[in-house]
Structures are given as C-alpha cells and as structure tokens.
C-alpha cells in the first residue's frame, strides 16, 4: 500500500505507539497515509480504537514476523 510517511514504534509499549502516532499525524495533510510499525501486541486493538475515536481511517492492519503494520489515513 502507498503511504506518505512512516513511523516505527518497534520496541515501544503502551501508550507510546498511540501517542506518537497522534504526533506523527499532526503535521500531515488530510487524506495522507501514515504507515505505523509496532511490536506491542496491544497496539492492534489500540490502533483500531484510536481510529474509531479520532475519525482517522485505519485502512489496513496486518502482522508479519512479529511486527504489526498499520496504514492510517488522516482525517
């Protein structure tokens, strides 16, 4: 999937992946896509909850080799 910016949250625990995703989105324009990589298993549910509550769209979420990859489209 195409994306405009990448944020690697590998090794970070709650709440850093969410808080820093919010920060990474802050300077992006509406409609742009942020790719987030995380290793915290809790991020899977948290990223969906973040999207639901902030209105940013979680386009895709997948797992590969212990890493969780998310694509978040800015509202």
């Amino acid at each position: 999937m195409n994306f405009d910016k990448e944020f690697d949250a590998s090794g970070m625990s709650c709440p850093l992946p969410i808080v820093k995703t919010k920060k990474a989105l802050a300077d992006m324009e509406s409609g742009k896509v942020l790719k987030v990589i995380a290793t915290d298993v809790g991020a899977v549910k948290d990223m969906q909850a973040f999207a639901d509550q902030t209105g940013n769209a979680l386009l895709a979420s997948s797992e590969a080799g212990g890493k969780f990859i998310f694509f978040m489209k800015k509202k």
Binding site: C14, P15, I18, V19, T21, K22, K23, F50, Q53, T54
Partner: peptide, 11 residues
C-alpha cells in the same frame, strides 16, 4: 500520566 497522555491523543 499514561491515561492523560492517551486521552489527549484521542482528542
């Protein structure tokens, strides 16, 4: 601090 920062991130 965890709950406050998370809530702030959620708006």
């Amino acid at each position: 601090y965890i709950l406050a920062s998370t809530a702030a991130a959620l708006g």
